[in-house]
Simulated assay, not measured.
Amino acid sequence: MSGELTPPRAIRGFISFVALLRANGFAVAPEQTTAFLAAIELLGPRSLQHIRKAGLATLAPPPERHATYHRLFDLHFRGSEAIEPAEGEDEEIVRLQEEGRGEDEPPLAEEANESGLAAARAEALVERRFGRDTNIDALRRLSREAAARLPRRRGHRRRRARRGPFADLRRTLRDSVRNDGEVLRLGRLRRRPRPRRILLLIDVSGSMKARTEENMKLAHALSQAARNVEVFTFGTRLTRVTRSLRLKRREQALSAAAHLVSDWDGGTRIGDALQAFLAVPRFGSYARGAAVVVISDGLERGDPAALRDAVAKLSRRAWRVSWLTPLAMAGGFQPQTEALIAIRRFVDDLVGGGSSAAVVSHLLSLGSRRAA
Rank of each mutant, 00 (worst) to 15 (best):
V241D: 04
R243T: 09
K248C: 01
Q252W: 06
Q252G: 01
A257Q: 07
A258G: 09
V261Y: 04
S262T: 13
W264E: 00
D265G: 09
G266Q: 03
G267R: 11
G267P: 14
T268D: 04
T268R: 06
I270A: 11
G271T: 02
D272T: 14
D272A: 15
A273V: 07
L274P: 02
A279K: 12
V280D: 12
P281Q: 01
P281M: 01
R282K: 10
R282L: 08
G284M: 08
Y286M: 11
R288L: 05
G289P: 15
A291T: 11
V292H: 08
V293N: 00
S296F: 09
L299M: 06
E300W: 13
A306M: 14
A306V: 15
L307C: 08
A310D: 11
V311A: 01
K313M: 12
R316E: 13
R317D: 03
R320G: 01
V321T: 06
S322R: 04
L324E: 05
T325Y: 11
P326L: 03
M329W: 05
A330H: 13
G331C: 05
G332E: 04
F333P: 05
F333L: 05
F333H: 14
Q334R: 14
Q334A: 15
L340P: 13
I341K: 15
R344G: 00
R345L: 04
F346T: 00
V347R: 08
D349M: 09
L350D: 00
G353I: 12
G354Q: 06
S355A: 14
S355P: 12
S356F: 03
S356T: 15
S356Q: 08
A357D: 10
A358L: 15
V360K: 07
S365H: 12
G367V: 04
S368N: 07
A371W: 09
